[in-house]
Amino acid sequence: MGKIHEKYLRMDKMPHIWCAGCGNGIIMGAFINAIDRLGYDKDEVAAVSGIGCSGRITGYMDFNTIHTTHGRALAFATGIKLAKPRLKVFVFMGDGDAVAIGGNHLIHACRRNLDMTAVIFNNHIYGMTGGQFSPTTFKNKNATTAPYGTTDPDFDIAQLCIGAGATYVARGTSYHARLLTDLIVKGAEHPGFSIIEVITHCPVNFGRRNNFESPAQMLLWQKEHGVAARKAKTMPLEDMEGKFTIGELYRSTEIPEYLEEYGRVIQAANEEKKQ
């Protein structure tokens, strides 16, 4: 392990329990690189996670951490940010956690535009519980609950968040680890609600049922199917079939940040008390 890992990880909890080749470790590495680049003190960072394989991340990182209930990570994080605005709040959720169980929390967090950064680990499956299909499992892919392939169309998390009002939306992959670090840094610096969807891989519960022979093959799939957003604009639509865009997808500074708006409520209440 490098010095950076020893600085930001809880070394007594290593090695982590994620499976061999799991993308979650790569994302955790990219995240601590981002924190290091941002220069945040460990005590000013709050990391909040939900339930699932991704939820384990808060146990491994040495910040102010909380491992919350299923789908409710954003609700806990909202409370933390409102109570202690000086904290840099990061939220970690899986695809099931963010868009199924916590789908409502996600869209309303996007709508409020509170200054937090959410990282969604999208591995297209419920990995921890044994490989049931999730809202982001691609159509016709196999899962334990879809042995003949899923019939449901999949959710596009990034587009969902843009629609719900998030002011910074980006998509990365676990293969493009350097890009992911850049996106997390930009998301953290953005004053408002930032979403970084990370396309990652579950070699055990998704890969083995869908003809991926190794974790490396799944990373290669990400490399071949992730198209830089800038390049995608110039590509014909048929070439984008089955592919996805990566990079910064949306940014807006026009919508006011929630703490600023809420500050006006606090001010009005204080003035009323004085009278």
């Binding site: 392990m1 290593m14 090695p15 982590h16 799991c22 470790g25 790569i26 680890a177 990373l219």
Partner: peptide
């Protein structure tokens, strides 16, 4: 290798 190792074994 350092960036893609999920277990941070490589330096």
């Amino acid at each position: 290798c350092e960036l893609l190792c999920p277990d941070f074994c490589i330096t």
